[in-house]
């Protein structure tokens, strides 16, 4: 059997991704996580001196704290198996990527293991975030200087 015939057969036999169901589960999971985030935000706005704009920071930190507990007790991977991108896209997924790597590499010591591997998965997000933000901000600053656009 040649490669092409095999590849056709492989595509027939391998189960199709249940796209509709996966999208629904991602929507539900991500939606719930964001609704919880909204609740946390209100908490900071009512009980502390935060505004709608500034409450984002403590909210993100709190969500990552929750992600730490769920990751540590082995629940986050279960949520992820159900929710797919619904648990990966929110900042809790970013937290999970860093926290799981930190837990995993504890056996190689705190410096080489935890410190050295914490950004193993999440590092690329930071790299691309920073670089794209730099490019975008640079272009915009230059455009403003030449008076093409305003701030």
């Amino acid at each position: 059997m040649d490669r092409q015939a095999y590849s056709q057969m492989e595509q027939q036999v391998t189960p199709k991704v249940p796209l509709g169901l996966n999208l629904m589960k991602a929507f539900l999971t991500g939606g719930i996580i964001c609704a919880i985030g909204e609740g946390v935000m209100y908490f900071y706005m009512y009980f502390f001196d935060f505004t709608e704009r500034t409450a984002g920071n403590p909210t993100v930190a709190t969500m990552i704290f929750i992600a730490m507990l769920l990751t540590g007790f082995g629940k986050y991977k279960r949520i992820a198996q159900f929710g797919g991108a619904g648990s990966a896209v929110p900042v809790t997924g970013f937290g999970n990527a860093m926290i799981s790597a930190a837990i995993e590499h504890r056996t190689e010591g705190y410096v080489l293991g935890v410190g050295g591997n914490m950004f193993k998965l999440a590092g690329s997000v930071i790299v691309f975030g920073v670089f794209s933000a730099f490019v975008v901000a640079l272009i915009k600053t230059i455009l403003v200087k030449f008076g093409v656009v305003g701030w």
Binding site: L23, A26, G30, G31, C34, A35, G84, G86, A88
Partner: peptide, 17 residues
């Protein structure tokens, strides 16, 4: 928040699947 956050995740799931 639920709907908008959910929609971001739907985009993510489309990129996955």
């Amino acid at each position: 928040a639920f709907v908008v956050g959910g929609l971001f995740c739907v985009i993510g799931q489309l990129l996955f699947d």
